[in-house]
Design a binder for these strands. Structure first.
Lengths: 199, 199
DNA sequence: GAGTATCCTGAACGAGCATTCAGGACCGCG
DNA sequence: CGCGGTCCTGAATGCTCGTTCAGGATACTC
């Protein structure tokens, strides 16, 4: 049972990875069961065997990915000290140097899906809240440490979070002149303005 | 021929309007020829008669809409005086008080399509450039008038443009706590910080 | 080693949809 | 009138998938 129990699980994980890869390449609307199967080197039957539908596979893949990302983020932040340092860390992650998201592509897809699908809407709201609350914590920490100064921590947080989304769009669309490094710099510069601090 | 020449054109315009309306409601991926026909009160045959394909209809509808928006914007800006006033005007337009875009929804759709479709990518790049160059002009005008002050006008422009996109996402997704008014305030506050001016 | 549960395959099915098409109304013109 | 053009309809066509299914391998249990 040692090998037998593992192989199917391994296969399942491989399919999830294939889902993510196809999703990045073809987008939510363009992803077909057959694509996933091909990318995973298996049959479309198996994809539907493990996940009961295409939608199920997509959902589970995204959920898994996002959870991994936030777990990483929260662990990383806890291990970093100093609010300014934490902010830099978030800028790095957002700019895509991190391993888990890498692609804002998937976020864009999620946003659009959220426009028309209630369950996607809830998912993205939750994810956004999580990111925003991480940011808010860092801001608050900086303010009470006297490192940051802002008229309204809530507003500043929202603006910084939204700015990152906006920058990410340029990055995802490979707008000329937008690179991860530039994105990071631009965001940190804005943070410095917002928080009256040199970050 | 007086009436006869007009009626078909009118019908065509009605179809274009229907395309936009369906697009808003169902999104790019969810829009079907039959939906458009129903919304326009006509047959799917006619939709394909006027525009040779579904994709053609979608493209023409979006193009028309965007051109109208930018024509409005540029005319409005020309008629407004004072850079601070112009900035307020842009904030208003962005926050959706304007008539033409109203919906950032369509922008989100365009972004996602741009991820996978080269022609959409070019279209959105051009539109973005146009918006950004309007903003840049206003910033420059303010700087040379001595009303605005910024370390780098280019960076400030990019950040303000991206912030607006990010705020727009929250607005489009009806994130709790985001309203057109709040979006406008948040953006103007950021502009004030960036440009060292009270806007 | 027979029985059984789990994994897996690829062909077959059927729904959904863009597009085509055969025709029909209407109008202006000779 | 009759002819030809434009505008319009809705049924028929054909294709692209998601999903189902009949069957097979593999391995664990008794």
């Amino acid at each position: 049972m040692v090998i037998a129990a593992k192989a199917p699980e391994e296969r399942r994980r491989r399919i999830l990875a294939a889902v993510v890869s196809v999703l990045r390449e073809r987008g939510y609307a363009g992803t077909r069961v057959a694509d996933i199967a091909a990318a995973a080197g298996t049959s479309s039957g198996l994809v539907l065997y493990h996940f009961s539908s295409l939608a199920g596979a997509l959902t589970e893949a995204l959920t898994t990915l996002e959870d991994a990302f936030y777990d990483d983020l929260e662990r990383d932040l806890a291990a970093t000290d100093g609010p300014a340092e934490k902010l830099r860390h978030m800028a790095e992650l957002g700019a895509g140097s991190g391993p888990a998201v890498g692609d804002w592509t998937l976020w864009l897809e999620l946003w659009v899906r959220a426009l028309h699908d209630p369950s996607a809407r809830m998912a993205r709201e939750q994810l956004d809240r999580r990111w925003r609350s991480c940011l808010r914590d860092v801001v608050d920490e900086g303010v009470s440490a006297g490192v940051f100064r802002t008229a309204d921590a809530g507003d500043a947080t929202v603006r910084l979070a939204c700015l990152m989304d906006g920058l990410a769009i340029q990055l995802a669309l490979e707008d000329e002149g937008m690179t991860p490094e530039r994105m990071q710099l631009l965001w940190l510069a804005s943070a410095a303005l917002e928080l009256d601090a040199s970050v």
